[in-house]
Design a protein around this nucleic acid. Structure first.
Length: 124
DNA sequence: AAGTTGACAAGGA
DNA sequence: TTCCTTGCCAACT
């Protein structure tokens, strides 16, 4: 049985993943942030891919609003089957986020500037 | 320990 | 503007 869909670390998360979760947790309600944006807040703007991995390793039941994180196009970039893209879109719309005809979010309107993050995140 | 994968991003055609 | 290739960083096998 391949559990590749969910990278479970067994509850033991690395410091990096921990920071990502903290940053995502700081995203205000009804706002969105890009993977690269989260990485930038952490002091590593090139670690956008790593942010995706960190969120993929997220356990079910965590207080991390992973659905508020999208790609640079303002579109859902999820490929997982557990927390699918449909769920993310539903959660975002539930917070008042609007999608255009192309299924993209207006970055100028719902984009998060990255303010209000704890110093624990920028441990660079 | 080493190689491959992935919920990304930027640049070129 | 869209599609393809290259580069990054961390996690997984």
């Amino acid at each position: 049985m391949k559990r590749t869909a969910g990278r479970n670390t067994g509850g033991k998360l690395t410091a990096f993943t921990r920071r990502v979760h903290s940053a995502v947790r700081s995203i205000p309600h009804g706002r969105i942030a890009s993977y690269g944006g989260i990485a930038a807040v952490m002091g590593q703007p090139r670690a956008g891919r790593a942010v995706g991995s960190a969120l993929c390793a997220l356990e079910d039941g965590s207080d991390v609003p992973w659905w508020r994180v999208v790609n640079r196009n303002g579109e859902i970039s999820i490929k997982s089957t557990i927390h699918g893209p449909a769920l993310q879109r539903a959660l975002l719309e539930g917070e008042g986020v609007k999608f255009d005809a192309a299924g993209r979010i207006d970055w100028e309107r719902f984009g998060w500037d990255g303010s209000g993050v704890p110093d624990d995140v920028r441990e660079d």
